[in-house]
């Protein structure tokens, strides 16, 4: 599984997770093979990135990727906790933290892979 920006999507890729819109409604189901019309629709919905199945990662490779992410995650969370004050219970701040964490993890894992 890997996160891909909508602009990088190509027809023929396979969805690894359901895609939901802002209201939580499923607009494309897991397992759907992506077609051109889907990509246009996703852009119109403002979806920025999508979880797709990357078949070139072997089961062993996938394990390696998970453990790489496992090393990186605590370091990143430590860094983010220093930047963010206590915000539990504040829905807006929690969402900002969630999105920033997702972005930073994605970028760090992508860099990690690039360093190999």
């Amino acid at each position: 599984m890997s996160l891909l920006e909508v602009n990088a999507l190509q027809a023929g890729m396979l969805l690894a997770q359901d895609i939901r819109n802002n209201h939580g409604t499923v607009i494309l189901k897991r397992g759907t093979t992506i077609a051109e019309r889907h990509i246009k629709g996703l852009k119109a919905w403002g979806i920025s990135e999508v979880d797709i199945v990357t078949s070139e990662i072997t089961p062993e490779g996938r394990g390696e990727e998970d453990s790489m992410a496992g090393e990186v995650i605590p370091v990143i969370e430590e860094k983010l906790k220093k930047r963010f004050h206590r915000f539990e219970g504040d829905a807006v701040m929690e969402e900002i933290y969630r999105v920033v964490r997702k972005l930073v993890l994605h970028e760090a894992t992508a860099t990690h892979k690039g360093d190999e």
Binding site: N22, H23, G46, I47, S48, K82, R83, F84, H85, F87, D90, A91, V92, M93, E95, I96, V99, V100, L103
Partner: peptide, 24 residues
């Protein structure tokens, strides 16, 4: 450090929490 967002700011701008991901 990330400052807290006051109610007056959030209410005034009028966006939704669900908009934040795309915006960020």
């Amino acid at each position: 450090k990330v400052p807290c967002i006051h109610d007056s700011v959030w209410r005034s701008l009028g966006i939704k929490i669900s908009d934040l991901e795309f915006i960020i």
